[in-house]
Design a binder for these strands. Structure first.
Lengths: 234, 234
DNA sequence: CCAAAAGTGTTCAACATACACCCATGA
DNA sequence: TCATGGGTGTATGTTGAACACTTTTGG
């Protein structure tokens, strides 16, 4: 039974948009699609909230529809609700940002949406306020990644220190000193060095490491200051 | 003209809830009300999104309705949308947190809502998921206040260093060494020391300071590490 | 004159940064 | 053998944290 006080109120369309980010070894990338109404403009992957869905659940469904991936990193970014943000009808959009392992995605890609990865630093014009969403997502990623180990969501299980460094350089769009970087990263004692070396990329081969999430869970305040403080822009 | 693709979609009620925080010189406080449907339970101040309103605009209206204050600090916290969060009807709520100067409020308070300040560390049971909203707001306040000068939103224009320290101690629920605190805070060079001393509180009287927002605008990365890093919980 | 709060400096340890050379290997 | 990327150590300055005494003044 709905009370009168509720009945009198306007209702609104509620959409979700996902900023899906990946890392290809060189660049930080965003996955864009050409969707329904606006076939001329690149946009974020999105969809409508369904009646019995939670918000994060809906965002996960939308990421799954495009990438075939489950259990990806997902974090609510912000709700966007300017009255005219969508000229067709008033829509409240809740933006989620999502980090995926780009190699996993390659194997599961759905062709239905003509999806394409773009460097986050060279994006085309985007639909509605999707450009704002991406800017905000990058800001959030930088601030989060400086204090939480979410970078590993973008790398394979096994990765080398040079790969990890390239990733952080892509996120912060700058370069780090490799000696200081490796000292800092190893001093956290959250990486396990494997016996195996990467083959085929460099002649010498770099050791693989894996991130130890159990150790991370066991201690708090662990992931502080991996990035030189002078490089952090908040 | 609305496209069919839009017409087929469900629409939802959209509400806004405000976590209004203040500081009384000792404790960090949250302003709660007893509202409409649920007169037995304390809840956050909230309201419905109106058809031509932006989200932040609506949140500002709601804060104004309760406190009579305009130009308060307002930041979107998160959207809450679990299907059954409101048992009466499915509602998406967008929570904003807001910082007010508690003395300004005293002079403008509206009696209509039976509002009351509660210490954030001793809250009663709250309506729906409002308890989660407050927890999240506190987390956000801590993380934000450690790197941005938003604490001043909770203090009068003129404040003493002991007052500022008490504020940060309330936010982080801990104690700081006053020698280290004043050194750090003054080393930012964002406070102007006034000639005037506080009267009536202590015998000696503490100098008043004011926050120089122009200087803050002029430099970036300014407000880093006011809080001893060991005290920051993110 | 005394109680209560304000104000102030130093020492030590930890961390951040800058910087350059040798190593391993496939081609 | 050489070119390419991998890996490591040291010295210096800066910052963070711990710590105690003197000053002011109203009652």
């Amino acid at each position: 039974m709905m009370l009168d006080q509720y009945k009198e109120q306007h209702a609104y369309l509620v959409a979700l948009d996902s900023i899906i980010m990946g890392f290809d070894g060189e660049d930080l990338k965003v996955l864009l699609v050409k969707r329904g109404v606006e076939q001329n403009t690149w946009s974020l992957m999105g969809g409508w909230l369904q009646p019995r869905e939670g918000l994060e659940q809906a965002a996960a469904r939308i990421v799954f529809d495009l990438t075939g991936l489950t259990n990806v990193y997902l974090e609510q970014l912000s709700a966007f609700g300017e009255p005219d943000r969508d000229p067709i009808a008033r829509t409240i959009s809740i933006a989620y940002f999502s980090l995926v392992r780009i190699d996993d995605y390659e194997s599961k890609i759905s062709e239905a949406y003509h999806a394409q990865w773009f460097s986050i630093y060279q994006l085309p014009d985007l639909l509605f306020d999707h450009g704002d969403m991406v800017s905000l997502a990058l800001k959030r990623l930088r601030s989060k990644a400086s204090q939480h180990p979410i970078g590993f969501e973008l790398l394979p299980e096994k990765f080398t220190l040079p790969q990890l460094q390239k990733l952080y350089e892509a996120i912060y769009h700058t370069e780090f000193d490799k000696r200081n970087f490796s000292r800092k990263v190893l001093s956290m004692r959250l990486l396990n060095k494997l016996d195996e070396k990467q083959k085929g990329f460099s002649k010498r081969g770099a050791y693989y490491y894996s991130f130890d999430s159990n150790k991370y869970e066991a201690i708090t305040h662990a992931f502080i200051n991996i990035i030189p403080t002078s490089e952090i822009e908040l």
